[in-house]
Design a protein around this nucleic acid. Structure first.
Lengths: 144, 144
DNA sequence: TGATAAAATGTGCATATACACATAAAAGGA
DNA sequence: TCCTTTTATGTGTATATGCACATTTTATCA
């Protein structure tokens, strides 16, 4: 039924969320292109610096990311020497920390991140940017 | 610098967008679990029913999805017999259409989609749901 | 017509995502 | 202590995403 499809196309919150997410992701990815980290990796470097002695669970909770997703996403960062993983006294867990090289790449990334934030605000418009900000904070508080 | 990281953690629009996108995706995915299609596949079945004689470009534009992403996402739908791809007189392009089996699965999916919409509205709250709706429509109009 | 430009699509590669299942180690209790 | 439960993590599989690069076919124009 065309009627139903039209309804979905016009009102589906998944579609809208996902389309916007793709756009936002690409905007930040382009900004970080020459830095050497993806937006997701940048956010992981943020969290690992904020949580001292972080393990996989701590980070996945902080980033609201699936544990197994975060676990896999760590690998490129380890490979590139941006984060370091060490054993813990509790031999079940692993301690995750940022390296010196990771800190350096974060400095570069931070500047580009600021540019991306400004660029997105321009695209969306300051008024809607503020609306989006407070709305998202409210939603995140709900789903956390 | 902890200051910078705190700033990113609290204000990064990429982080917020992505976290919400993950939550919304999972909510719709769980709703559609027993139907046999993912949320992205459901949205593709929607578009293909709305656009007669669609080709890859048409669909990717309608869904605001990268052309190559859409191309790959077609494959599970073809494999499962939900869409059909045929040659065109213009031999560069391919014509994409929904099958009878695809229509049947869409009927089942539509009911679950309605439930997901209601569930998300409940989680977010009706007032913010409406805000989100109009905000997203505005943003999508901007970035399209 | 013949060369060039444009259009439509496909592929290799890398990252991102999450469920189901499995393993290993610590904690708790009888 | 020994058994059970909980905790922390890892792996297999499948989908989703987009850039860079390539191919094929159509359109354009001198």
């Amino acid at each position: 039924m065309k009627e139903r499809c039209l309804n979905v196309a016009q009102t589906c919150m998944f579609n809208k969320t996902r389309a916007i997410s793709r756009y936002v992701t690409n905007l930040y990815a382009n900004a970080l292109k020459d830095v050497g980290v993806t937006p997701v990796q940048f956010s992981m470097l943020t969290a690992v610096q904020l949580i001292s002695n972080a393990n996989v669970n701590n980070l996945s909770n902080a980033l609201m990311m699936d544990r197994t997703t975060l676990n896999r996403n760590l690998k490129p960062l380890v490979r590139d020497g941006f984060i370091d993983i060490q054993e813990s006294t509790d031999r079940r867990e692993r301690k995750i920390s940022i390296t010196q090289e990771g800190k350096e790449v974060y400095e570069k990334g931070y500047k580009k991140w600021e540019e991306a934030q400004r660029e997105l605000e321009e695209v969306i418009g300051t008024e809607d940017w503020l609306t989006m900000n407070s709305l998202f904070d409210t939603i995140i508080a709900r789903i956390k």
